[in-house]
Amino acid sequence: MPDEQVTDEAIVQAALTDKEQFGVIMDRYEAPLRRYIGRLGVRNVEDQSDVLQDIFIKVYRNLNGFDTGLKFSSWIYRIAHNEAISAYRKKNVRPEGHLVADSEEILSFVVGAVEAADVQFDQTVNASVVNQALLELDPKYRQVLLLRFFEHKEYDEISDILQIPTGSVGTLIHRGKKQLATVINNEHIRI
């Protein structure tokens, strides 16, 4: 069976006895995780590689701790999230993520959040403005918006990654979108 068709969960089982199989996990997740930790604030490529190395070692060490009731991607994102957060805490720097993708998509969601206030988005709003506004959000809002609109995760996956109740995910996304709209408005951008 080609590697692409084998589920993550099956590879995890195989990796427990054959560590070479763990390479398949790394092949699958290195790029998305690199992007994710970059968005969380680990910008330097060397730092990203160091954090990724720590993430994969941690994943390998904890393979038996993987809860098969979860999606493997949620579990590995959780570890990546925690490692990235502790990495930039260690460096004592404010996250400076570069949220380069999908800003238009999040814009459309923010429109939905503020429509009740009869506010219209100017289609010319620059994606970089949204990126900048996202960086000014409370971390708890930024994290859920990142996972929802940049990583395209479902609510239950976000719940598993951030280890918060699913109901709280919805609340945080709702409030995050409102705060994002406020931040953008405060920046004197007509939306």
Binding site: L16, D27, S49, Y60, N64, G65
Partner: peptide, 22 residues
């Protein structure tokens, strides 16, 4: 970058005898 991280991880696993916890 991909290759190097993978190599580094396998290298660390081998050198430090990293094993999955029981």
């Amino acid at each position: 970058s991909d290759t190097s991280v993978k190599d580094r991880v396998f290298s660390q696993i081998t050198e430090q005898h990293v094993q999955p916890r029981a």
